[in-house]
Simulated assay, not measured.
Amino acid sequence: MFVISLKYKVPIQQVEHHLEAHRAFLEKYYANGHFLLSGRKVPRTGGLIVASGSDRDEIERIIAQDPFYVHQIADYEVTEFEPTQWDVRLDSMINSKE
Rank of each mutant, 00 (worst) to 15 (best):
K97R: 15
G53E: 08
G33L: 10
A31K: 14
H34M: 12
A21G: 08
F2M: 10
R23A: 09
D55S: 11
Y29A: 03
R61G: 05
R40M: 11
T84S: 11
T79H: 12
I4L: 14
I4E: 05
V88T: 11
E60W: 01
K41N: 11
I59A: 08
R89D: 08
A24M: 11
K97P: 00
K97Y: 08
H17L: 14
I62E: 04
L37P: 01
F25R: 03
K9G: 09
S38L: 07
D75A: 10
V88P: 10
T79G: 01
V50M: 13
A74G: 08
Y30M: 08
L19W: 03
V78G: 02
R56C: 07
E20P: 00
H22P: 04
G47Q: 04
I73N: 03
P67F: 03
L90G: 02
E77K: 13
Q13K: 13
V70Q: 13
S38P: 06
V70P: 02
S52M: 13
F68K: 03
E98G: 06
V10C: 07
Y30K: 12
L6K: 05
R89C: 07
E77H: 09
R23K: 14
Q85K: 12
D66I: 06
G53Q: 09
I4Y: 01
V88L: 12
F35K: 04
Y8P: 07
K7W: 00
F81R: 06
P11L: 10
V42Q: 12
D66K: 05
E60I: 02
W86G: 04
M93R: 11
N95R: 15
F81Y: 14
Y76P: 11
M1G: 08
I73C: 02
R44I: 10
K28V: 09
V15F: 08
V88M: 11
Q13H: 06
S54R: 14
S96D: 11
G33S: 07
L90I: 00
Y30W: 06
Q13T: 13
S96A: 15
